[in-house]
């Protein structure tokens, strides 16, 4: 099978999520907005903010992934692109993975890159740990996007599927959230928690595309 439909789906998803949402600004704005609501809600005591900051960023990252994924496959169902892929015998799992990866590139990676700034606002120590943290958020975000993609593919034919995606995907986010926040507490890359986080992300990368493909075949019927 030629890689052409995969590449074109990737490029199209990249363009869509970049152009359709004011570039990376919209997800970044949502991420930052969700995060800065927290000090307003729980108070501004520096020690407490330092303790909860990494966790707040995980929650904001999970919410941002859910918000941006809602329409990832709906357009393909509506405009017939999905039917064309299936007719042409294109590898739907690879296409779904490419699209999800494109969404992570435009809406997940920028958040990870911005996490050091938010971490500083949450009173984290400046230093190399912030960059390690960005890497950890990037790896964990990838798992969020792939499991969220399964929820998005399952609810591709459901009108207003956003809440459904959240309910489906949140239990699948648990290992990433746990390993991720443990990794942020350790914050040295060779420790167990970052390795477990990377392993669970690899598991998501391996398993989620097939679930997405099965769900998309269902959506095309």
């Amino acid at each position: 099978m030629s890689p052409k439909p995969i590449l074109s789906a990737f490029r199209q998803a990249l363009g869509e999520s970049w152009a359709g949402g004011a570039g990376a600004l919209l997800p970044l704005g949502f991420f930052a907005g969700a995060a800065v609501l927290v000090p307003l809600g729980i108070g501004t005591e520096p020690g407490m903010l330092r303790a909860v900051g990494p966790g707040i960023l995980w929650v904001s990252l999970a919410l941002s992934s859910l918000v941006t994924l809602e329409r990832i496959f709906q357009a393909d169902v509506e405009d017939g692109a999905l039917d064309l892929w299936l007719q042409a015998g294109a590898p739907v799992s690879a296409i779904a993975a490419a699209k999800t990866f494109a969404h992570w590139l435009t809406a997940g990676l920028p958040l990870a890159l911005m996490s050091p700034v938010l971490a500083l606002m949450f009173q984290a120590q400046a230093g190399i740990g912030l960059l390690t943290g960005a890497l950890i958020y990037g790896i964990g975000g990838l798992a969020f996007f792939f499991w969220g993609g399964v929820g998005a593919a399952l609810s591709a034919t459901v009108r207003r599927g956003g809440l459904l995606i959240a309910l489906i995907a949140l239990p699948l986010y648990v290992p990433t959230a746990i390993f991720g926040s443990m990794a942020m507490r350790g914050a040295a890359l060779g420790d167990t928690a970052p390795l477990l986080l990377a392993a669970s992300t690899l598991f998501a990368l391996a398993a989620a595309p097939f679930a997405m493909a099965a769900a998309l075949r269902l959506a095309a019927d």
Partner: peptide
């Protein structure tokens, strides 16, 4: 998908 994830959730 849930059953695949249950061992991982349990472990974590």
């Amino acid at each position: 998908v849930g059953a695949l994830n249950v061992p991982l959730i349990k472990f974590s």
